[in-house]
């Protein structure tokens, strides 16, 4: 099954490369589609030799969710609040620290990061 998927991906790659070649004015050796086509062929060949098994692993919902929250918050309100919230969530829930400690550590860490990155390195975080 995996071999089939890989083989199809290889064909898709080849196809896309051909599409790029076709849409351009260059000869094949210069076309941006050259490498994709070549790699597509290689992928198809390799797919025959693929032997890995896929073991079912549960998806890390909580950690993943926290990270997504961080991402969203960062884009909405910027560095300070999002990092603070994430650190708090991380320390309190994932590292299982007691509430006041988690709050304190997250504030401390965010402050240190602010000092180091923004003040010292002058990187303009949002």
């Amino acid at each position: 099954m995996k071999k089939l998927i890989l083989g199809l991906l290889g064909l898709a790659l080849f196809g896309y490369g051909f599409f790029l070649f076709h849409g351009g004015k260059e000869e094949i050796a210069l076309s941006p589609g050259l490498m994709p086509m070549f790699l597509g062929v290689l992928t198809v060949i390799l797919s025959f030799f693929y032997k890995e098994q896929w073991t079912k692993k549960p998806f890390p919902l909580r950690r993943g969710a926290f990270i997504l929250i961080y991402l969203v918050l960062w884009n909405l309100v910027g560095f300070w609040v999002s990092t603070l919230v994430f650190c708090f969530l991380g320390f309190y829930i994932l590292a299982e620290k007691k509430l006041p400690y988690a709050a304190l550590y997250s504030l401390g860490l965010t402050l240190i990061l602010d000092l180091v990155f923004i003040r010292f390195f002058r990187i303009m975080l949002p």
């Binding site: 994430f86 991380g90 860490l109 990061l113 990187i123």
Partner: peptide, 10 residues
């Protein structure tokens, strides 16, 4: 891990 994640974001 928390530390690494924050550093990765920054």
């Amino acid at each position: 891990a928390v530390f690494v994640i924050v550093l990765s974001f920054i």
